[in-house]
Design a protein around this nucleic acid. Structure first.
Lengths: 152, 152
DNA sequence: CTCAAAACAGAATATTTTTCTGTAAAAATA
DNA sequence: TATTTTTACAGAAAAATATTCTGTTTTGAG
């Protein structure tokens, strides 16, 4: 499962654009179609390549507000955590949720149309959860960087 | 540029899997190839579809540590912000950077191999920036949710 | 109503992916 | 060292997919 330099070049290209054709990639790294095809299939099979997705413009879809929620739970028990996790998975506005160290328990990232939607989300969907004790909201004023590209 | 229900269905499918074929999509929404093709092209042209990317398994690539950095700048001026922004764009470990409201100025998300790498990043790449005054690190203990899918 | 534009279906074409065949290099085994 | 096996690759054929073309139906504006 060790990656050689050719694998890495393929991964770098595919991270940028999942619609590069095998021929595109083959040309860029000076190989024929066969090894490129075989390597991509292997990377998929090994799970290095997780999936191919389409990224949409959140603002053009009307989502003009991004916020981080720092959530503290009522208790630190396993059941409390699991209950909270399950609820979060069903909330489509929550695009990231991580259990973290520090002065609070969870860091969430929320993408939502506007402040009114956030008010509703906060009051009717998040603070309403029985496991939630405290929510501290950090509003995003301006996005500087957002990438799915991992350094390879 | 208004999206009808068919556009939304297409976008929902493509967000899930950028490798669905036009036929796949056409079948799922009971249309022929032509309208699906035309609509996808239009959504690309209008920028609703931003790009197609490949998501990789960060752990299999050796990135076992995720952290949030809460950064405070030395000054709140435009030049200071811009200088910091530019520096961040050149740091591949930083996958998210947002200017935020609250007790600190920026929220960063860092994906990195391990604690030693983070130590190096913190000391040699981040705290070294002339605009940076304070860094508070929040370590991710466990990832609950991480998606590129926006609610439509 | 009438006309123009938009949305769609089906077929033809072009491109891409996948499979197949074979060769050369590298690694493993005797 | 010689032999075998495996791996990586090239090129071509086949299959699948995307793109283009032609024409019909529907929709909306005047």
């Amino acid at each position: 499962m060790a990656l050689d330099e050719i694998d890495k070049k393929i991964l770098r290209l595919l991270q940028e654009d999942a619609h590069y054709t095998l021929k595109d990639i083959a040309n860029k790294i000076n190989l024929s179609l066969t090894p490129v095809h075989d390597r991509v299939k292997r990377l998929e099979k090994d799970g290095i390549i997780e999936k191919y997705v389409t990224l949409l413009d959140k603002k053009k879809l009307g989502n003009n507000l991004t916020v981080y929620c720092q959530v503290t739970l009522t208790k630190q028990t396993y059941d409390t955590s699991e209950g909270f996790n399950q609820s979060i998975l069903n909330l489509p506005e929550v695009v990231e949720c991580n259990y973290v160290s520090g002065n609070f328990d969870y860091m969430l990232k929320i993408i939502i149309p506007d402040m009114e939607s956030y008010h509703h989300f906060h009051q009717k969907k998040l603070s309403i959860l029985p496991e939630v004790s405290l929510i501290n909201t950090v509003f995003v004023i301006s996005e500087v960087k957002s990438t799915t590209v991992l350094p390879i």
